[in-house]
């Protein structure tokens, strides 16, 4: 089927299998491999992207259902000049990435929590990020980075 999407500001028209997932379209058809595939069962959050301003796990999102939507992936967080966003910068300063596999999903999920106005509160942010697993950092540095940016943007 023909699929029209706006991804990170650019228009795409793709011919895809009608039962392809959004994750598959992003990685295989379009080549945006920042979005990771982990569990494929909605549990780990490493495939998190924004669809029309809402976070979804793209491994469970049937691409056909989001035809016409606006998608933001981790590649779209940095802005055109390829400078890092304040949140990405905070991840670096806090050492919030080790192997980095969870990082794209964490960044997208945290970015939207902050845009939605989450308080700079550790408990609220832990709860908000409970759909994103990290096997390396023990979470504290990630939470510190997100709390900092929630407070400075607040």
């Amino acid at each position: 089927m023909k699929l029209s999407l706006t991804i990170n500001g650019d228009p795409y028209r793709e011919n895809v299998e009608s039962t392809q997932t959004l994750l598959g379209v992003l990685r295989d058809d379009i080549g945006l491999t920042g979005t990771k595939w982990g569990c494929l069962t909605g549990d780990c959050g490493s495939c998190t992207v924004l669809v029309d301003g809402r976070t979804v796990v793209s491994c469970l999102q049937l691409a056909a259902q989001v035809d016409g939507s606006t998608i933001i992936t981790v590649e779209g967080l940095a802005g055109r000049g390829r400078t890092m966003s304040d949140l990405q910068d905070a991840f670096v300063r806090h050492g919030a990435a080790q192997c980095g596999f969870c990082t794209p999903g964490m960044l997208v999920a945290a970015e939207q929590l902050i845009r939605d106005g989450i308080e700079a509160d550790e408990k609220a942010i832990r709860e908000g990020l409970s759909g994103n697993l990290c096997r390396c950092t023990g979470y504290n540095k990630i939470i510190d980075a997100v709390v900092e940016i929630a407070a400075t943007r607040g």
Binding site: G42, T48, T55, V56, V57, L60, A109, G128, G131
Partner: peptide, 9 residues
């Protein structure tokens, strides 16, 4: 129920 991402869907 689930996570924010799951609840959005």
């Amino acid at each position: 129920l689930g996570s924010v991402q799951i609840r959005n869907m």
